[in-house]
Design a protein around this nucleic acid. Structure first.
Ligand code: NAD
Ligand code: NAD
Lengths: 215, 215
DNA sequence: TTATTATCGATAGAAAATTATCGATAAATC
DNA sequence: GATTTATCGATAATTTTCTATCGATAATAA
């Protein structure tokens, strides 16, 4: 056995890694060579030991008293997340949110490259969004198979989401990034990740409510 | 003492509540009168007991064998989150993402009403986005104070975010919903909630990487 | 009517995540 | 050169979150 089994880490750790990455890339731009867990922790009000535990999973090695080498740490985090190889993705739903995602340049930094857009609305098909032609849904399966697309992004309204996901699964797509607020069912083996803005809003709203109440 | 102290619940629970809410609103539209934890759990692959624990914090009361009354549960969740009273909010950064948020009609359902937009770019100031005029940054503090705005939404680039947040704090804004991938510092007592899409993407990417590796 | 079943609500237990401790080490200071 | 300090890496303890159990209850079926 030459390859070690891929390490499974907690969702919480996984979600903190990109936070560190953003800071590290900033430090790199500023020409800093080393970064310590204590310093990274300070940026987020985390306990330093939490950051050290998180970085541990990436296999990065630090040095006592000086910390981690910034370039190496960036590389190790990106590799751990799978962001060192950029993956091509399809986006379905050329509405407000879909357009915003299409216009986001930094996705390349995060291992994502949206290569085609689809929509069911005949009025949108044929129009161009950020220099990409909106294609009809019917072309999705064929193109996805031909191009070996692994990632599908869902930015349609909630009532259309399940149908889109079903089509993606048929198209051989392996991982789905869903922005619609609908519970989706998928077959085993397919990865579903929900990016629900309202979850974050719920935390904010409840905090604000409690603050206002206790005045 | 007449008012009970506001209940503090875990972030995890708080983030699951809107998920239930979406389903419940759907059930309501379908005319269903009751919903059980077991059923809700099934929609998300959660353990039924987890849903019951989550709903407990809202103070909602269920009935054995039949479950929770849909209308009441919706009301209790919304009230717990603070979504029964819609809060006015300011948005800063009329770019791709800012426009998408401005165009999102459902925020009203989630207790949020974006009433004004600001941008530092003179070419954007004066233009209209979803029928709202983009205002210059200089007008933000005055208007925020006059209108008693509690919520600020940050959709500027990472390097501008701290300045925007500082301005919001000075303007009397109490809670900040930040979409920029920058660690922000805020004074005690101000609520900061980060909506970082890359966090969700990191989970997806890592899962996909592991899936692809183990083939 | 009585038995069965699905569910709630309360309490207890298990698992996971976070935090603390401690020896080792490398740099900085005395 | 010895001492102090900041940090890492490993292990242990603690806290938080999630899950299981169990009696009570309301609907349904026998
Ligand atoms: N806009 C936001 O800021 C925002 C915030 C949070 C969540 N969301 C969610 O993201 C999704 C998209 O939001 P939006 O504001 O862009 O909506 P939108 O109405 O602007 O766009 C939806 C697009 O999806 C297309 N579509 C609908 N059903 C389809 C189907 N079955 N197949 C293919 N295309 C289909 C429509 O033609 C439209 O172009 C929604 O589910 C919304 O709830 C959006
Ligand atoms: N577009 C996306 O899908 C997406 C996804 C994830 C994260 N984000 C983040 O959201 C933020 C906005 O992204 P975007 O794609 O809309 O960018 P964008 O460049 O389209 O828009 C940014 C807007 O902010 C304004 N701005 C910049 N600095 C400002 C300042 N100091 N004060 C006031 N206004 C200022 C700019 O004039 C511009 O209109 C970025 O931080 C980005 O990293 C965007």
């Amino acid at each position: 056995m030459t390859t070690s089994a891929p390490v499974v880490v907690s969702r919480s750790t996984l979600k903190r890694l990109p936070l560190y990455l953003h800071v590290l890339e900033d430090l790199q731009r500023q020409g800093r060579e080393y970064a310590s867990c204590t310093m990274l922790a300070g940026k987020f009000d985390f306990a330093p030991i939490l950051v050290r535990k998180d970085l541990e999973v990436t296999g990065a090695k630090g040095t006592a008293k000086i910390g981690f080498k910034v370039v190496d740490l960036i590389r190790d985090i990106k590799e751990f997340l799978g962001w060192h190889n950029v993956q091509d993705a399809f986006l379905v739903g050329a509405g407000n949110l879909g357009k915003a995602l299409l216009g986001y340049k930094d996705f390349e930094l995060y291992g994502l490259n949206i290569v085609a857009v689809f929509d069911a609305d005949p009025r949108k098909v044929g129009t161009r969004v950020f220099n990409k032609e909106v294609l009809p849904m019917g072309r999705m399966p064929g193109l996805a198979k031909r191009m070996h697309i692994n990632i599908g992004i869902v930015t349609v309204s909630a009532d259309g989401a399940q149908a889109v996901v079903d089509a993606m699964v048929i198209s051989g797509i392996r991982a789905i990034w869903n922005f619609a607020p609908a519970p989706l069912s998928i077959p085993d083996g397919i990865i579903l990740e929900n990016a629900r803005l309202t979850q974050s809003l719920a935390v904010l709203s409840n905090n604000l409510k409690r603050t206002l109440q206790s005045e």
